[in-house]
Each structure stands twice: as structure tokens, then as C-alpha cells.
Nucleic acid binder design. Structure first.
Lengths: 207, 207
DNA sequence: TGCATTTATGACCCATCGGTCATTAACGCA
DNA sequence: TGCGTTAATGACCGATGGGTCATAAATGCA
């Protein structure tokens, strides 16, 4: 009954494969989560057989690690570069950083990686740690630097928000979660939410 | 080889079962997440056989729905009662509500239910909706009421935080997530975080 | 006490999926 | 053109776990 499917001719692409596999895996993880992603599906998306994945990645978990790195590293380093090369008023800088944070997290696929870490990271401390080291740690440090810069220059006054940068990032994280979880029941206008977020923070910080 | 384990005598407890099963399920869901929870494990915790679960719940998903209801309804109605019966200054009321929110979410098992909805709710719109209706919707409405009360009484001035109550809850949600996900890499002192949260919000709101 | 009814049991079924490996085919060098 | 090397394949394996159901035990009523 089963006609032998005309199997596609093989291609040997040792150097291009890893990137293609990670790209396919990212899509699948985003759509189905960690446990929900099938290696067969990743292979199909990458146009290869399942076994081929194992020529480049030892296990599913390694694949997800690669997705974390490939997705997050460019985003973080982009913001870091921006901060390093800026030398105007700090309130404008903070505004730029927060705007970028919404672009990088709330409006990008990176939020799905975060969702997976939150929801399924329980049993994978190594993945959680990698995510923390790759993303969260840098984000917190970045906000700290910006806020400290404002205080040092006399533009911001010390207070709870300068002491705990996580207070400043919180609305951004929540917006990302909301957009993935509750948007169909109570839609959130990201831009006006972000404007409110900025307003509250800057009013609390300005000297 | 396998000695027949001395099977425990059966007990018929039609009315007590559902509660016991939900209780056991809650523990298992909290420890292992939705997909990670095995009905066999739930049964063992409840001291019954797996088949017995199906006398009271049609499927795993119904069990999780019962957990959502049992866990969240009492918490929300507790806060609602508190707000309804208070008649002092609104900043104190908001402080009470936020403090209760940390107790109910960040410091309680309810945060794990939230984590499951965020992380695994993707494929279960009914569960997401139930969570929204049972918990989030009431939480947002409650904050709105408190803030509106402050504005009406001239204690708060209108601004972004009065317009979007989600800005006020955000740090609490983030603290819950942080405590479950990143605490081992960067511990968070909940009480000082909450104090900072209150400080920022009240400063932004007071007329 | 005997029997009908209801509740409880757990072996079993079957679909799923991560990971393996013997086989095959593409490649490039001589 | 032939051959050794190595990338690629996909059938297969074994573990897992949600859900089923024939069987058995508890209960309570007559």
C-alpha cells in the first residue's frame, strides 16, 4: 500500500546544518514548548531526518541551550552597545533602554523562550541557569548601570527604584507574560502600557 | 519473586474522595507541572488506585480545573471581603491589598498554579480562561476599585498607574516568577522588594 | 443473613517520543 | 573512475503514561 515516498536526495552540508537545525528547533519550541517539541518535527522543519540532529547535538536539551544562546545573546549585546555609546541625559537613556526592552522581549520571539524557562524550567536547573546568565543577569546589570549613572550625575534621586532595578523591569516582564497568556481574554495595548510604565518610573526617579 | 503486596483494605468514601484527590493532585501539579504530573502519582498520594480518580474526574484536565478553583477562589474572596469592609485612608487600603497579594501569590502555593498556566497554558485555552476568570480578572478589578476610591476621595491623583492597574500588580507577578525561577542564582528578599514596590506606587499616586 | 448496588482496583492497552545504529549515499582525492 | 571517508537516513527499541474495563470487595436494604 505505502508507496515508497520518493526520498529526497541527500545533501551533505556539515557547516550549514547546526544553524538550520537551531532555527527549526526555535520555531518548534516556540510553538509547542519544550516537552511538546518533537525531534521529528524539528527534523522535518529543517528538511532532514531525525538521526541527523544527533550528529550535531547530543540531546534535546543541548538543542534548547543553543536556541537560548542564539536568540538572546544578540539582543542583549545590542542594548549594551547602545548604552555604552550614549552620552546624553539619563532619563532619555532609560527611556531608550526600556523601549528596547519591550522590543526585545514583549514584541519578539524571545518572550517565548522566557515562557518556556518559567513554565518548564523546574526540572532543568542548567537551562534556567543558562537563561539567567545569558539574559536576566545582563538585563539587571544594565538597568543598574543606567540608574547609577543618573544618580552620579545628579539627575536621579536615590530611592527604592534605584536600589532594586528589578522594580524597573517588572512591568516589561509582566507585559510579555500577559501578551502570551491573557491577551485573548483582555487584550493589552503594549505601547500605552509602556508609556505608563515609563511615566511612573521617570517620575519616581527624577531629582 | 514478587510477593503479592498485602493490598490495603478498600474503603468506600464517596463524599470525601473528590477533595482528597484534588488535594493530592495539587501537590503533584505543584511539584511536577501539568504534563509532568502522573495520575498514578496522584492516586498514590491520595491513597487510592488510579482507576478511582476516573470515578470522580473525567480526565486530567478536569482535575486541574478543580485545583485552580479550590486554590484561587478562597484567596480572592478573602481580599475582596477585606476591601469591602474597610473604610479608612486609601493609601493604607492599597498597602493592605498589596501586602495580601504578596501573601496570596508570592508566598503561597498559588504561584505554582500561575506558573503552570503561564508555561503550559499554551495548548489549554480553557484552563487559561478559567485562571483568568477566577483570579486575574478579579485582581485587576480589585486594584481598579481601590485606586478609583482614592481618586474619588481626592487622596490619589489620576495618572498612568490609576489608568492601568496592571502597572500596580506587575512587581508582585514578577516577584512570584523570580522566586520560582531565579532565586537560586540571585535570591530576592521578598519583603524589601515589596516595600520598594509600595514606596514607588504610593509616591506616584498620592495627591 | 443474602443479595443487589455501588465503589474501588490495577493489569492492560496503545499511542507517543527520545534516542540508537546498521545501512546507504554523497563527496573528494588519487 | 574507483575507493575510502564520513554525513545522512529512518526503521527500530524501550520507556512512559493517560485512559479503560473486567473483576472484586464493601455496603446497606429487605
Amino acid at each position: 500500500m505505502s508507496e515508497a515516498l520518493p526520498s529526497v536526495p541527500r545533501k551533505r552540508r556539515k557547516s550549514a546544518r547546526p544553524g538550520e537545525i537551531v532555527e527549526a528547533a526555535a520555531q518548534s519550541f516556540i510553538e509547542h514548548g519544550y516537552a511538546g517539541t518533537k525531534l521529528d518535527d524539528v527534523a522535518r522543519r529543517a528538511g532532514i531526518a531525525k538521526g541527523t540532529i544527533y550528529l550535531y547535538f547530543a540531546a534535546k536539551q543541548d538543542l534548547f541551550e543553543a536556541v537560548i544562546r542564539d536568540t538572546l545573546e544578540p539582543l542583549i549585546s545590542g542594548v549594551e552597545t547602545m548604552v555604552d555609546s550614549y552620552d546624553g541625559a539619563t532619563d532619555i537613556l532609560l527611556q531608550m533602554v526600556i523601549t528596547k526592552a519591550y522590543e526585545n522581549i514583549v514584541k519578539s520571539d524571545a518572550r517565548h523562550v522566557m515562557r518556556i524557562i518559567i513554565g518548564e524550567g523546574h526540572k532543568f536547573p542548567e537551562l534556567r541557569e543558562l537563561y539567567y546568565e545569558t539574559s536576566i543577569k545582563h538585563g539587571v546589570a544594565l538597568i543598574s548601570r543606567v540608574v547609577q549613572r543618573g544618580v552620579d550625575r545628579g539627575e536621579f534621586r536615590p530611592g527604592p527604584a534605584t536600589q532594586n532595578p528589578r522594580l524597573i523591569m517588572a512591568p516589561c516582564i509582566m507585559a510579555a507574560i500577559w501578551s502570551m497568556t491573557f491577551d485573548e481574554f483582555a487584550p493589552m495595548d503594549i505601547d500605552s502600557f509602556m508609556a505608563g510604565h515609563l511615566d511612573v518610573m521617570l517620575n519616581g526617579l527624577r531629582a
